[in-house]
Structures are given as C-alpha cells and as structure tokens.
Amino acid sequence: MSKETELVRNKAKELLEDGDVELVVGYEEGTYPSRTTPLFADTLEKAERLIWNPFCVNSLPKLLSKGHFEDKLAVFVKGCDSRTVIRLLQDNQLDRDEVIVLGIPCNGNVDLDKIKDKVDITTIIEVEVTNNGVNVKTEGSTEELSREEALYDKCLDCRFPNPVIADEVIGNEVSELPKNKNKDDEVASLANKSVAEKNEFWEAHFERCLRCYACRNACSACTCRDCLFDRDERSTWLAKGKTLSDNEAFHITRAFHVAGRCVDCGECERVCPVGIPVQKLNRKISLDMDNLFGIGEIATSEDDIDNPPPLGTFLTEDPEEFM
C-alpha cells in the first residue's frame, strides 16, 4: 500500500468516524490495479477500499453538482479538479459549507492508452511519476518511460499541480512541473493556418463525433439540468442527428456555452472516445476572453468565486468591436 493510499484511507475514516461528513468521495481499484473507479464511501468498511495512485484521473467534483446529494460530504481533488470545485461554487452547484475539499498535489496522471503497447497493463503493480519520467513496475520488470510517453496530454502542460482550494492538503506540495508541451502555441499555430486548412482540420475531427456527450457530462462548466441538446429532434433547429454539420453545431455551441467559464481541466478531451481535440476549441476561447476582457487565468484561487464570468456581466469598459 502506498503512502498516499494510507493517508487517504486514514483521513476518510477519521472524517466518517467523527461524523464530520456522511460520505467521502474518492477512488477504488477497478478491474486491475491500473484501473480506478470513483468510490462513494459512507461506511468505514468502504473507506478501507479507497486508494490513491497516478491512475486516479476522473475528476470527482462534477459528480457532486446540485441535486445529487443531500449529505455533507468530503471529496479528494487534484490540482485540476480543485479548479472544478471553484467553477461549481461560482455556478452555485455546490455549497461551500456542505463540502470538505481534500486536496492532493499531483505529478501527472498515467494514460493507459499511451502505455498499453509498451507494457502489459494488466500486470502493473506500481507506478511512480517524477519530473524526469515515469517508472512503471510490472510483475516481471520495470519500465522507464518519459513523461510524454506515459502521461495524459493535459498533464504535460499542467500549471496547477497543487490544489487551489482545499480545506486540507494531504501529501507534499509539488514544485513546478516540467512543461513537456505548450497547448497555447498549438492553438496559435492552428489559428494562423488558412481558412481551408482550418476547415479541413476540424471537419476531419467533427466527422468522427459519436454525439455520446461524454465531453458535456465530464465538463465542470456544463451543469444545465436540461441541456438544449437533449430536446426532441424535431422541435428545434439544434438537431441531434449525427451529420457533420449537426456535430459541428454541437461543438461550436457547447464551446461558446462554456466561454469564460472553462477551467481548462482537459476532461472533455480526455473522455472523448474518438479523440477529438475539444480542448483546442475551449482553449482558443479562453485565450480570446483574456485578450478581450483581460481576465487572465480563471479559477486560480478561492477569491475568484466572487469574480463573475465576463459573459455573465456588463461593464461600460467592455470592448465593443461591433460598433
């Protein structure tokens, strides 16, 4: 059992025993040690199943958005997930008094799809992620992989390894992570391409969209109880049909609905079963928002909860490009 797992279990048991919370939301082992799945622990026996390792990737706070739970609860968050907490608090999807945020600094999450050709993922025993690389220990051997080879793309450009909001931080703070990738440069180079090239790039991706709505369901800013894409197909011009232009309308609309509120957690892109670079859309808008309204990086501290999103407010000094 790793040190982190022990800390996570002890903390959960302590909170449940003292009656501070009714429910602790964390991760448990899935089919094999390299798979994890969310665990809702309401008893001490269940809390014994909690784990913490570099495979704990799903963002948990979204599961707690309004209407799902009545009880006071505690949730484990990484740096990226902690920004989701800020998003949900600002959108009135969580009550600050009803949730205890347990932050755990993170060095990066391991992408099983990336390493499955290099190691047998069913035999993985332990994984260690450091600034220099990723050591994967299996039953037979130990593989040393680079961060680019083993981690999720979103982790290669991580700017928030430590929780930005937490009632308690478990484990040691992570100092600055190496930047193995620059998402913003990728967005800028795509934006500078010709109209035809951009069209070709996005059509090739949107064409493959299955309209499974995994991106929407994982999104920390997508919390409408009645999503406009769930309406009857015939009653609206936003059809559910799976044609290129309907898919395109879906992605453009969704991107704009989270404009100025996207916390750049990268969950949309991670959960996409066909690998559409959804984050390239959202990141473009975030950069435009900063460019137009000078908002910088949003959801970086608890103080940001009181800053209304730029498209949800009006200031006389707002830019007016259309005048």
Partner: peptide, 12 residues
C-alpha cells in the same frame, strides 16, 4: 463568436 467561427474554418 466571430473569432470562434473563424477558428473552425469559416471565411472571416
């Protein structure tokens, strides 16, 4: 919105 539409490949 205009910037987004240009980004996905509409003619400005």
């Amino acid at each position: 919105m205009k910037r987004l539409l240009e980004y996905v490949g509409f003619e400005p």
